[in-house]
Write a protein that binds this DNA or RNA. Structure first.
Lengths: 129, 129, 129, 129
DNA sequence: GTGGTCTAGACCACT
DNA sequence: GTGGTCTAGACCACA
């Protein structure tokens, strides 16, 4: 699992870290129970501050993707991943909405948009899982 | 066309304004050539700062959705809406990616995701355009 | 509303700050919609770091006691305070349990314990509300 | 007497151990003079570090709940359990206070709170002692 | 002027 | 060695 941070990006570094770890989970590169690097190790690795990594890990903890244990450090949630409940779908819809509005305003059809969705799904699920 | 601002949202107010205007365009409520409220009027209407509205309008101009003329004020781009070129699609893909990664990590299938996309499309295109 | 921080205490400073603000709400000294000092102002006032206050405010936000708005700063949740739902009661029970176990082990009766509860309620609700 | 440790809890493991032993005393499952498992045995049993169990035992000793003898090992205080003196009550009040403040802020009435206290007492004193 | 983000460096509690 | 807490100081986005 390799993390690549874009320091120029508008998205905060801690968000980038969290997103890439979620991607890793989606891809199956990170499996439940697996340990993540310690905050210090990852911070050195990425060349960012320890607190930045810490914030990313806590974001993931809050959303239920990881557990933070005293000694063992941080591990991918081993028991039950958070599920796509109604609240999540509602939230997803809200975040999807502006993207779709832009697409429509630029004349895209729904099937063109779904093509992009398919592209992204294939990137993240290469095995057709 | 009614704009509703959520002051406690994380998304900056100027982004909210811009997004809702783009939604208006997508829905067909705002048609090319149509004038938008003056910066001052909208600011008073929404109870926000002049600069905030101004920033939203300039963001829209930069993306090609509106024209800003000294006389006519701000109007929806009358000639040619920006199109969904490769660069836009690439950008869209990047913004879509973390949403899809989260969905997959929570066990959603592609057709479930596309259902949400469909929901959103229907909200924005009620006439089946 | 006066905050007093004990630097020697085991409880983290940010927890102390959050607890005292909750006390202020309980006492009715802080009313919904009321503004709290800015992170910087309170930090200077208490002689602690800005981040410490920030963390306290975010804890309160997460639990629904305050709203953090862009410009206005931090205000006591004006709409609806978080309620004592089942989850809260369950959590409260868990935190109560060790206190009660100690009390029992030291031979306290239930009515003695409830007397202490009454004392505390009276301190926080002096008007008999 | 069965101890269950939650590794992902915020409360330190040694605190959890100590609390559960106090609970055992409260419930009457552990009676004065009774021996506790050796540090080593309990550590292996719980899968935690020796130091952790040791710290829990010494915490209990410090509060007067157990005696630590070289020969007999650790036993529940056989002579006189610590009592609920003024200092203990004062300490209890301080720990109770934030719980009650939260309850009030969420609109709980005193009798609702006492109901929870009753629930907890019944769990710990099932025999109505 | 407000909070948001990030850095650098420190000490401590826990295991 | 791990995360938790705290400090000091800085720059930026937002309004």
């Amino acid at each position: 699992m390799l993390l690549a941070i874009d320091l120029q990006s508008e998205t905060p570094i801690y968000t980038q870290i969290a997103q890439q770890i979620i991607e890793g989970i989606a891809k199956g590169e990170l499996i439940p129970g697996e340990g993540l690097p310690s905050v210090r190790a990852l911070a050195v690795d990425l060349g960012v501050n320890l607190h930045t990594v810490n914030k990313a890990y806590h974001l993931l903890k809050q959303d239920g993707y990881v557990q933070i244990n005293r000694k063992q450090g941080v591990i991918i949630e081993p028991d039950a991943m958070p599920i796509a409940d109604e609240q999540f779908k509602k939230n997803l819809l809200e975040r999807l909405r502006p993207l779709i509005a832009e697409a429509i305003a630029r004349g895209m059809e729904m099937n063109q948009f779904e093509e992009l969705v398919g592209t992204s799904f294939n990137e993240l699920l290469p095995n057709g899982r």
